[in-house]
């Protein structure tokens, strides 16, 4: 890379636009190149002394200050309207977004609640010992009432093994309902 290119790199370095890798490369170049080092130092000194806002800037007359402020003041209504619209639009977009998000969340929750109620119902049958046993008792009683001959088959149903299986797996499908199905067969 020619020194003229390094001088342009020096400009980017001064404006803080140089990325880390290029900065390392640049620093290693000026460490061994007097000319580029001098260019950077001169530019930095000039910026501090010669290229100041006081030196390069200029003050408009007071008359102009007043005129600019007056004109801008009088156009206040105009720009207030311009400014208010986006603010209003922004608010509307935010409200609509919240509404939509609310709908989605509520919908999701409702589906979840329905689902969890089904699950809960099943879980109670499976996991709650008192609940499931009373259920089974009702079922057994009903079945016995309907068909007293099936008593033997009831005793031999793999009710307990099934339950422990479901517990171990945490599987909600293997439930206390199954034995009832088996009983009816």
């Amino acid at each position: 890379m020619a020194c003229s290119d390094w001088e342009e790199t020096a400009l980017l370095y001064s404006s803080g636009e140089l990325d880390e890798d290029h900065e390392v490369e640049f620093k290693s170049h000026i460490a061994q190149c007097e000319s580029c080092k001098a260019f950077l130092e001169q530019y930095q000194k000039d910026r501090e002394s010669l290229f100041s806002i006081e030196a390069l800037g200029a003050a408009p007359s007071e008359k102009v200050d007043l005129e600019v402020k007056r004109v801008c003041e009088s156009s206040k209504k105009q720009y207030t309207n311009i400014a208010v619209f986006p603010a209003f639009a922004k608010k509307s977009i935010i409200s609509v977004s919240f509404f939509l998000i609310g709908f989605v969340v509520i919908g999701y929750l409702m589906i979840n609640v329905q689902h969890s109620e089904v699950v809960k119902a099943k879980t109670i049958q499976t996991n709650d010992p008192s609940g499931s046993e009373s259920n089974q008792m009702v079922n057994v009683a009903e079945i016995l009432k309907a068909n007293p001959d099936s008593a033997d088959s009831i005793n031999s149903t793999p009710l307990d093994s099934n339950r422990s299986f479901s517990k171990n797996r945490g599987n909600l499908d293997a439930t206390g309902v199954v034995p009832v199905d088996l009983i009816t067969k």
């Binding site: 806002i53 390069l56 800037g57 200029a58 003050a59 408009p60 200050d65 600019v68 402020k69 801008c72 003041e73 206040k76 720009y79 207030t80 400014a83 603010a87």
Partner: peptide
């Protein structure tokens, strides 16, 4: 400034008028 408050506009104008005017003048 965006909200239509003159102080916002004056603040920015007073802060930068010399720079912008220096640029335009030169």
């Amino acid at each position: 400034w965006l909200g239509g408050k003159p102080s916002g506009f004056s603040g920015l104008y007073d802060k930068y008028k010399n720079r912008v005017f220096g640029f335009l003048l030169r």
